[in-house]
Write a protein that binds this DNA or RNA. Structure first.
Length: 426
RNA sequence: GGAGAGGUGGCAGAGUGGCUUAAUGCGCCAGAUUGCUAAUCUGGUGACCCCUUCGGGGGUCCGGGGGUUCAAAUCCCCCCUUCUCCGCCA
């Protein structure tokens, strides 16, 4: 959500932001409703003021005066009722509309319609040239007896996976490495619910708009399975006014993530790339409303992801996500894409988002500065490691000709010291 | 799941229809004072919305929503939530 006052003051800027993001939003209707609201508000306030005044006088008044006042009060009451009804109908239309206004993209966000227009900022490492025909992660996993997609589908439907044995151990290793690395970098670990009420989803910007991708439990409970720990983590301090001394708050959590992947039929159907359930370690930063600080945090959480990939010896690139590929809540987003030989290209593994106060305003998450003034916080988040996609990269990039997988040094301490996993395949 | 008790400002906590402008304490801020960062005293200290001639004026908010009333923190209904006991349970 952005400030209604800002929409009022700079409607053209807001419209330009919507256009850049390719998001439709009826800014003019919002302005119309706002005008109606502001016409009505003073009238209602004045009537209430008179009502309050009379309320104080009545107990002390003489009998005639009291009768006179009571008559007046009846009048005020009916008038108020109709004005309040009018006000309610305005709010009923205005509030949901406000929740659809996207955050304004930064000037540094490239123009563009979709991910083809994202701009590459840097690359690290060189995609490996294989001296043999490399296998993809599904072939490798199945041949090693580590990966069972068919059984997963029988148990849980399509787009699911089961890892077993050394691959399951590698998955745990990745997650533990990610968590430990972030704890070392002063992020506070948390274990959070992944089944949440609607408010955190509205607050973080997944509702409205992202509802298609979210599993709802059923009609008995108003509960939803989150697609990322960002949702509960960012919501921890909702509805609070924190002290500036307590900021920044840096959080890290591993969670299971659930995604419906509606509208992706036939896309990335093979293997682990697009699945309904996976494990992810997520980093969240909450700090003061300061653009320079937000930008610094943004760079830092991106660096955290890069450092992990470098430790895993995986080639990657960083892209500046263009307007049309940016979600409604983000000011700017850097995606990290890791080299995946079977795709003969880079695949998205991390997504570093900067929100300014968009989420905090929706979550009512504020802080008091040194002067005692209250402001909405700034929030940011990024993936540290999403297990399934990282596994693709690890298996495919580090495979040996004989079908074993080399374990990057950084992960060996979580793998009982193993330098490779798997048996020699025919 | 059953029974009971709660939810009031940053925190604790009083308040059972109009004298509430939400007491009081703690915390916080400012000033005074003492050879010090401690103590004491004095004063100040909520969020949000609308209007403004920028001095200020008005309104809303006591978990959330609805209702009764001229008037609701206070009475009624629904929901959320916390705690205690019982039941079930990893």
């Amino acid at each position: 959500m952005i400030d209604l006052k800002r929409i009022r003051a700079e409607p053209d800027l807001v419209k330009a932001g919507c256009a850049k993001k390719r998001i439709e939003c009826d800014v003019d209707r919002i302005l119309e409703l706002d005008e109606g609201f502001r016409g009505l508000a003073p009238k209602i306030d004045e009537l209430r003021s008179r009502q309050k005044q009379a309320g104080k006088e009545i107990p002390k008044a003489s009998d005639e005066r009291r009768a006179e006042l009571l008559g007046e009060q009846k009048h005020i009451k009916t008038e108020l009722k109709s004005l309040e009804a009018e006000m309610a109908s305005i709010q009923e239309e205005l509030q949901p509309l406000l929740l659809t206004v996207p955050n304004l993209p930064a000037a540094e966000v490239p123009d563009g319609a979709d991910d083809n227009d994202n701009v590459e900022l840097k690359t690290w490492g060189t995609p490996r040239v294989f001296g043999f025909t490399p296998r993809d992660h599904v072939d490798l996993g199945e041949a090693q007896g580590w990966l069972d997609v068919e059984t997963a589908a029988r148990i849980a439907g399509s787009r699911n996976y089961i890892t077993m044995g050394e691959l399951a151990r590698l998955e745990h290793a990745v997650l533990r490495f990610a968590l430990d690395m972030m704890i070392e970098r002063d992020f506070s670990p948390a274990i959070v619910p992944v089944l949440v009420r609607p408010e955190p989803l509205w607050g973080t910007g997944y509702f409205p708009g992202g509802g298609d991708q979210i599993y709802q439990t059923d009609d008995r409970d108003d509960l939803y399975l989150v697609g990322t720990a960002e949702v509960p983590l960012t919501s921890i301090h909702a509805e609070k006014i924190m002290d500036v001394k307590d900021l920044p708050i840096k959080l890290v959590a591993q969670s299971t993530c659930y995604r419906r992947e509606a509208g992706t039929y036939g896309k990335d159907t093979r293997g682990l790339y697009r699945v309904h359930q996976f494990q992810k370690v997520e980093q969240v930063v909450i700090d003061v409303a300061d653009e320079a600080k937000s930008t610094k945090h943004h760079a830092a959480i991106l660096q955290n992801a890069e450092d992990l990939l470098q430790a895993f010896e995986l080639p990657y690139r960083v892209v500046n996500v263009c307007g049309g590929d940016l979600g409604a809540p983000q000011v700017q987003k850097f995606d990290v894409e890791t080299w995946m030989p079977s795709r003969e290209g880079y695949g998205e593994t991390h997504s570093a988002s900067k929100f300014h106060e968009y989420q905090a305003r929706r979550l009512k998450m504020r802080y008091r500065d040194k002067e005692g003034k209250v402001h909405f916080c700034h929030t940011l988040n990024n993936t540290v490691a999403a297990s399934s996609r990282i596994l693709i990269a690890l298996m495919e990039n580090h495979q040996l000709e004989d079908g074993r997988i080399a374990v990057p040094e950084a992960l060996r301490c979580y793998m009982g010291g193993a330098e490779t996993i798997g048996k020699v395949l025919d």
